[in-house]
Amino acid sequence: IGIALYVRIPTCHDKPGTTQIAQLTQQTDSQISMVLPTIHEVDLFRCFCPVFLHSQMLWELVLLGEPLVVMAPSPSESSETVLALVSCISPLKYHSDFRPYFTIHDSEFKEYTTRTQAPPSVILGVTNPFFAKTLQHWPHIIRIGDIKLAGEIPKQVKVKKLKNLKTLDSKPGVYTSYKPFLNRDEDIIKQLQKGVQQKRPSEAQSVILRRYFLELTQSFIIPLERYVASLMPLQKSISPWKSPPQLRQFLPEEFMKTLEKAGPQLTSRLKGDWRGLYRHFLKSPNFDGWFRTRRKEMTQKLEALHLEALCEEDLLLWIQKHTEVETVDLVLKLKSKLLQAHQEHLPVKPGTMEKLRTHIDAIILALPEDLQGILLKTGTE
């Protein structure tokens, strides 16, 4: 009907919190082009509304990858609440499993309901009252009633001890013995309460809450980013004739020492046991996933710098001083590096790949003809 929708479905390689806009190459006058940054973004405030007094505690539980169950009246409410929880630690990616709508027919049903081992790091959304009995041993349970948004705040559910969770007649609430590491931020609560009294739209409340979570996560992650950046070897230590240097090891105690001068207090006014929160986080799947991603990015950066250093060398002069065998070995190594750069999309400067291809061709042409024929066929992309 005259409207073209360009939709880019996010992939597992996307960084949370970044929206990659599709490039619109063709656009005629008869088309109105629209870009949808995401297929479905949950209404954060609507999901957190019954429990927003505890939203900061829930942020901690998600950050630490704690086992969490959401018991809701309908699949849509359970799904939206689970997705809201997973997205609340953005731009950090949630690296554990999450099931927006988990049923008794799921293959992991036995594994998740057994009492013989501790519950895994997963967020489950359920609606079947049967789960109130079978998941009683889980450490953190959120029970929500019908999500409604009128002009008043729904009655805020309290944090209750797990022993109060009866099988079927439990009232809405957050059932946990967890003691938050950070003191509660009263300012955000007042801001959201004021918004409800003034009948501020739910979308506007969601923007406030999302920004609050984003700032909280960034305050938490910046000291880690700063420390990890210090593990990178100096650029001058990169030699074209040696393998790229390794990253220094992540040492938890060394990191903890950096918090005194460059901790979250630089960007967050929140007080509390930040150190305790970091200690728990360093043992969580979210840290493991985050650090693996950062380490891969930094290793690729080192590979790219090494490749650029090789391109700056006078390789034709080098082969004059070395044997044919060493020259053939160099060509094979350069071809392997070129293939790696292509496959892994290494962050090299523009023109580097072309420069390297020119180097390889020049070296091959400097070799005897029989070797040229073999090398031109070997290791091509």
Rank of each mutant, 00 (worst) to 15 (best):
E80Q: 15
V157A: 07
F130L: 13
F130I: 13
A132S: 14
A84Q: 02
Q136C: 02
I153T: 13
Q117I: 15
V82L: 01
G151L: 08
K190M: 09
L92I: 15
E152K: 10
Y94L: 06
V122Y: 08
D106W: 00
K171W: 02
Q193Y: 10
I142L: 15
K110W: 04
L85A: 01
V122W: 09
F131T: 01
F102S: 00
F102Y: 07
H95K: 04
Q156K: 06
L149E: 04
Q117D: 08
T113N: 11
I123N: 03
P139D: 03
Q136P: 00
L85H: 01
K161Q: 11
K133L: 04
L162F: 03
K160L: 15
E111M: 12
A84G: 06
S90V: 09
I142M: 14
I144P: 00
P119I: 02
R99A: 09
A150V: 08
H140S: 04
V126P: 02
P154F: 07
T103F: 00
K158I: 12
T127L: 01
S76F: 02
R143H: 08
P100T: 07
G145Y: 02
E186T: 15
I123K: 04
D97T: 08
I104G: 07
S87K: 13
P91C: 10
E77T: 12
F109M: 10
H140G: 00
T103I: 00
Q193I: 06
L85R: 01
H140W: 00
T176I: 05
Y175T: 08
F98C: 06
Q156W: 07
Q156S: 12
L182M: 12
S96M: 04
K158N: 11
D169Q: 12
T167R: 08
D97W: 06
L149N: 05
I142H: 03
H95L: 09
G145L: 02
D106A: 03
V174S: 04
G125H: 03
N183E: 12
H105F: 09
G151E: 14
K160S: 13
T116P: 03
Y178P: 05
S177N: 12
D185Y: 03
H137L: 05
E108Y: 09
E77R: 05
K163T: 14
D97F: 07
F130S: 13
P75M: 04
K158P: 09
S78L: 05
F131M: 02
E108W: 07
V122S: 10
D185V: 06
L192Q: 08
P120I: 11
S79G: 09
Q191C: 10
K179I: 15
E186F: 06
T81A: 03
V126C: 04
N128K: 07
Y175M: 11
K148T: 14
T176C: 11
I147D: 00
D97M: 07
H105M: 08
H140C: 01
T176S: 15
A118L: 13
G173A: 12
S90D: 08
I104A: 14
S74E: 11
R184K: 10
K110E: 09
T114C: 09
K155V: 14
